[in-house]
Design a protein around this nucleic acid. Structure first.
Length: 463
RNA sequence: UCCCCGGUAGCUCAGCUGGUAGAGCAGGUGGCUGUUAACCACCUUGUCGGCGGUUCGAGUCCGUCCCGGGGAGCCA
């Protein structure tokens, strides 16, 4: 089945050629002048192709007049200049074949706006809408740009495991992976006997590929992972999913500053790539979702991101006249309201916060010489909050051991992680970027469930 | 998990202090038109989220459960 894609047809704008187009009917309007206008879309781009169907076609009365939103068709015809406003070219149909009907009495999508809440209940049909088609293309473009960015810089793409025996940060509820018959779980002294399970030990779905990425960084230099991660947290917000994708670069012979430099260059590259390659979809989001989107993205490419350490941030927050629900003091974890105040009120651009108190950050972050803070960095953007979190890693064996103990993690579980600091240890750093939060940010969509094709949240695994 | 708001036609919603349901869109029919979220006229459509209670009477009040949204916590 050879077909021409609408994106190519519309960008070439060559009339006279005979082409074959396949896609789905968005709308059909009838003219008593003896023809129909069909708007068809094939997913290749946001724009529809206007098809003119003359009533002289043999199946005009029997089929064409019954075409409704959602039907799939093949059109063979000739491209001609359009005499009316709204489009420069259109397809004069010579033959129309209907592949599949969509009964308007039961087809849920109509040629009108639907609420995102409703569309979530029909995730199998929502990519046929303008918004979700655009999201799918932007997601694709961003995934491709992520690989391109790292490949251009010589980073090695490492496939870290999905099923893991280690619970990375000692935090974040893991989904359990088991081959047990749940009706009949083997017990030993009253407790589950994991030695009898598939892996002879407890296993789960990964919450991060970072620790494994560090292994490869400390042999390959610059590496990155890009894959799904899972959190069994019962969090019900517009920014959390139980299954989401994360990008995690990890670099040997790199400190915190180099890490921040990469993060900033990374985001700027992605935004720039998007403006160049997804112009039409971005214009759509700018028009219907967030009218400041294009301006924001352009600003983020040109502006230097604000960098300040945690201690300074606390000073700014305590001096401000803003009333916070959670009072600020040195040592406290920053709340959403504090982050938003810094990004939206104080600086009005992305802010990179560094050097947090060691008590509120994970064990693997490098402890500073002051002994009180760690080489952590959070990249905060307006509205979304934290989009990137990273750190320079602790490369001193004894300090890492001390940190494991003080956070109540069993060092024996991290024996291989400790050995990386025993044999040829090197300064290294990396960060994680939540892919869906990035897509949220660049589309302006407020709910993360609308940027994931099939979102998994507490109580929801449909589709 | 906590706090707030909501669940009424296929979709988006209105329905005041309790009296037994309505508008737009969609769909059908007709008209008009190189139309473009077309337009005009007429017509069809509801266990008012579930269960229980108060009342002569509940979409409306009370209880409870389920689902959705916003915010918080946790985080990416």
């Amino acid at each position: 089945m050879k077909r021409n894609k609408i994106i190519d047809i519309l960008s070439a704008e060559t009339t006279g050629s005979r082409i074959t187009v396949m896609g789905w009917v968005r709308t059909r309007r009838e003219s008593k002048g003896g023809f129909s206008f069909i708007e068809m879309n094939d997913g290749s781009c946001l724009s529809n192709l206007q098809v003119i169907v003359d009533d002289k076609l043999e199946n005009y009365e029997t089929e064409v007049r019954n075409l409704q939103t959602g039907c799939s068709i093949r059109v063979i015809g000739t491209l001609v200049a359009s005499p009316a406003k709204g489009q420069s070219i259109e397809l004069q149909a010579e033959e129309i074949e209907v592949y599949g009907w969509a009964d308007p009495d039961t087809y849920p999508l109509q040629k009108k706006r639907h609420s995102f809440e409703f569309l979530r209940t029909i995730a199998h049909l929502r990519p046929r809408t303008n918004t979700f088609g655009a999201v799918a293309r932007v997601r694709n473009a961003m995934a491709f740009a992520i690989h391109t960015f790292f490949q251009k810089r010589g980073f090695i793409y490492v496939h870290t495991p999905i099923i893991t025996g280690s619970d990375c940060e000692g935090a974040g509820e893991m989904f359990r992976v088991t081959a047990f018959d749940l009706e009949n779980v083997p017990k030993k002294n009253g407790e589950t006997d994991f030695e009898k399970d598939f892996f002879n030990q407890p296993a789960g779905l990964t919450v991060s590929g970072q620790l494994e990425a560090e292994i490869y960084a400390l042999s390959m230099g610059d590496v990155y992972t890009f894959g799904p991660t899972f959190r069994a947290e019962n969090s019900n917000t517009s920014r959390h999913l139980a299954e989401f994708w994360m990008v995690e670069p990890e670099m040997a012979f790199c400190d915190l500053e180099g890490n921040i430099d990469l993060a900033e260059a990374f985001l700027k590259y992605l935004f720039d790539d998007l403006l160049k390659n997804c112009e039409e979809d971005l214009a759509f989001f700018n028009r219907f979702i967030d009218s400041s989107l294009l301006e924001t993205l352009k600003t983020l490419i040109s502006e230097k991101y604000e960098r300040l350490d945690y201690t300074e941030a606390i000073k700014i927050l305590s001096k401000s006249k803003q009333k916070f629900e959670f009072p600020v003091h040195w040592g406290c974890d920053l709340q959403s309201e504090h982050e938003r105040y810094l990004t939206e009120k104080v600086f009005n651009k992305p802010v990179v916060l560094t050097d947090y108190p060691r008590e509120i950050k994970p064990f693997y972050m490098k402890v500073n010489e002051d002994g009180k803070t760690v080489r952590a960095m959070d990249l905060l953007v307006p509205k979304i909050g934290e989009i990137i979190g990273g750190s320079q890693r602790e490369d001193d064996h004894d300090m890492l051991l001390e940190r494991l103990k003080e956070t109540n993690l069993p060092p024996e579980d991290y024996w291989w992680y400790l050995e990386l600091r025993k044999f040829g240890s090197a300064p290294h750093a990396g960060f994680g970027l939540g892919f869906e939060r990035l897509i949220q940010f660049v589309t302006g969509l407020s709910n993360i469930r609308d940027v994931m094709p099939f979102p998994r949240t507490p109580g929801n695994v449909s589709f």
